[in-house]
């Protein structure tokens, strides 16, 4: 028998012998040391989750006072990090409003100004780059997205023989992303905007797999925004800076549209291809377009997602 087979240190009938005690403690000590060594990278962790953040309640269950406190915390954090005092507000949906977006494919020239205006307005990470709008360059006569070029970079647009189709969150009436979220961290608001509670998302990315429009973006690492480019006008469900490991997406510029302004992508569009408004108001521009224009495309209509984003043509 090798001596391992001798009664171990914890043998009931033998006392703890000096030798086995030494051996056990050496094994234990080296085990603890190895464990500590393997966890060493955690020393680089800078962004701890505070108790306050850890315990934060679900958005829909917070009282106005609790929300006040959370907004204060966000203000404090942003100020600490960017040395700019932001105005953080929790913009609520307005009664009798349902937002709809219309995009005129005849007019879009593929300049991607909307993409960049969106990044600036919504405090998207610039390294790594996160963009909510993807513009596809498609050959005339086809809507087959597999033929689309995502990375076109000519010296000037538009190019002959092609048309351009910007795709962003389609704000579906029947959103697959909301259905699959295991923790209800994303939902549809009464004005039709699908939002994400960045403080509730667990980062499983199931919604990203479920989205048929490639509209969701994940913070694979800590987002970085240059201080001078931070937009200080922020909303809780909208453009406040996000953390590592959570999902984000287009929210129709909630901090603008719920305050009666147009989304940033619309405002910057040089050709007037983008139209936005309240579909419940018969006098609105989008109501007029949906009444009078003849051809509309709802992307991937066959999936039954029923987008609030309509593509149309001047015919």
């Amino acid at each position: 028998m090798s001596d391992i087979h001798k009664p171990c240190a914890c043998s009931p009938d033998k006392g703890v012998s000096r030798r086995s005690f030494l051996r056990t403690s050496t094994v234990l000590a080296s085990g603890v040391a190895a464990l500590a060594a393997s966890l060493a990278p955690l020393r680089e962790l800078t962004d701890y989750t505070s108790i306050e953040q850890f315990m934060q309640k679900y958005y829909k269950e917070m009282t106005p006072q609790e929300m006040e406190k959370v907004l204060e915390r966000i203000t404090r954090e942003v100020e600490q990090h960017y040395k700019i005092r932001p105005h953080v507000k929790d913009y609520k949906p307005m009664d009798g409003v349902e937002f709809v977006y219309c995009l005129n494919l005849t007019r879009c020239i593929g300049c991607r100004k909307c993409v960049h205006a969106c990044v600036a307005e919504n405090n998207q990470s610039q390294n790594p780059e996160i963009q909510y709008i993807r513009v596809l360059k498609l050959p005339h006569g086809s809507l087959d997205m597999e033929k689309g070029d995502h990375n076109y970079a000519p010296s000037s647009v538009p190019e002959k023989g092609f048309f351009y189709m910007p795709v962003q969150c389609q704000q579906c009436k029947n959103p697959p992303c909301v259905k699959v979220c295991p923790v209800k961290a994303t939902w549809q608001e009464s004005d039709g905007i699908t939002v994400v509670d960045y403080d509730w998302c667990i980062g499983c990315r199931y919604c990203e797999a479920a989205c048929p429009y490639f509209a969701r973006r994940f913070n694979f690492t800590k987002p970085s925004i240059p201080k001078e480019r931070l937009n200080p006008n922020m909303s809780y469900l909208g453009n406040r800076p996000r953390k590592q490991g959570v999902m984000e997406k287009c929210h129709f510029c909630i901090q603008r549209t719920r305050a009666g302004k147009y989304p940033a992508c619309l405002e910057v569009c040089p050709t007037g291809a983008r139209k936005f408004g309240n579909i419940l108001d018969p006098e609105s521009e989008v109501s007029y377009i949906l009444r009078t224009k003849r051809v509309f495309i709802q992307l991937k209509e066959e999936l039954g997602t029923s987008p609030r984003f309509f593509y149309y043509f001047d015919v």
Binding site: T49, F54, Y58, C181, P182, V183, K184, A185, W200, C201, I202, G203, C204, R205, F218, N219, K243, Q244, G245, V246, M247
Partner: peptide
């Protein structure tokens, strides 16, 4: 998970279980 620290959001009763 991107946010393992928020694992408790998944626990029925105390989190929001969809």
């Amino acid at each position: 998970l991107g946010r393992p620290d928020r694992f408790w959001h998944l626990i029925p009763g105390i989190g929001q279980f969809n």
